[in-house]
Nucleic acid binder design. Structure first.
Length: 232
DNA sequence: GCGACAG
DNA sequence: ATCTTGTCGC
């Protein structure tokens, strides 16, 4: 897998928005998953509120066992600020570098953030899917845009997430009674299938196993690095 | 101008 | 995302 150098986007707000509009046209919303999905990956990024060092991790699990089979990570300084709608410009570079260290190519990637449930239909999951040329799903813990009714109480209950006339994702109950997830396609997958895979990857926790484990790994890395720094 | 706003 | 203590519920 080869990746261009992304250390500096060198983009202002208008240019980033323009780029997203172009990228959104390349997003595919039809299923292009292999007949048999054997490996599902989850990605996440962690950092301090007041700190520019980002820790990214990608965890690959086998399916349907959902056992971790490989972990890759990367850390780097990030200067791009958090701007609602431009999250991918902040987290994508360090994430791609973590992916670059991966030996096994996953069949599907679950992302902590939105897919097409984004003002310009180009959330982090879409941007990552396009870069990696892989099917991706956005599994966000909260809403960025769109509206929809509260889904039922039971695990698996869902309701459509819409913006204007279009359906951009689903509000999904991943466990009984928990706050729902905002699921939307990232790339090469449709909405119902994105929901199916999200639920298929959920164990006894609110977050799907791939992103949940990536989150744990990312926090472990940060604690480790911070301890290493204060001790030297 | 005002409110909303993934992580 | 992170900060941060105790507290409510299974």
């Amino acid at each position: 897998m080869n990746f261009p150098d992304l250390h500096s986007w060198n983009l202002d707000y208008a240019a980033a928005v323009a780029l997203q509009r172009r990228l959104a046209r390349q997003v595919e919303l039809t299923n292009r998953l292999p007949e048999r999905v054997r490996r599902v990956a989850g990605v996440d990024v962690s950092y301090r509120k007041r700190g520019d060092i980002f820790y990214a991790a990608v965890v690959v699990l086998d399916f349907p066992e959902l056992r971790p089979v490989e972990v890759a990570s990367w850390q780097a300084r990030v200067d791009f600020p958090y701007i609602p709608g431009l999250l991918s410009f902040r987290e994508l570079p360090v994430l791609l570098n973590a992916f670059r260290r991966l030996r096994h190519r996953p069949d599907l990637v679950l992302v902590d953030g939105q897919g097409i449930a984004h003002p310009r239909r180009c959330g982090l999951a879409c941007h990552l899917g396009l870069w990696l040329d892989l099917p991706t799903v956005g599994c966000a813990k909260s809403r960025l845009t769109g509206e929809g009714p509260e889904p039922g109480f039971a695990k698996g209950d869902r309701s459509p997430l819409r913006q204007g006339g279009e359906e951009i994702g689903a509000i999904v109950r991943s466990r009984d009674g928990v706050r729902p997830l905002y699921v939307s396609p990232g790339h090469r997958i449709d909405i119902p299938t994105a929901v199916d895979w999200t639920l298929a990857c959920c164990g006894r926790y609110r977050m799907p196993e791939p992103t949940r484990l990536a989150h744990l790994e990312t926090n472990r890395l940060r604690r480790e690095d911070e301890a290493r720094r204060s001790g030297s």
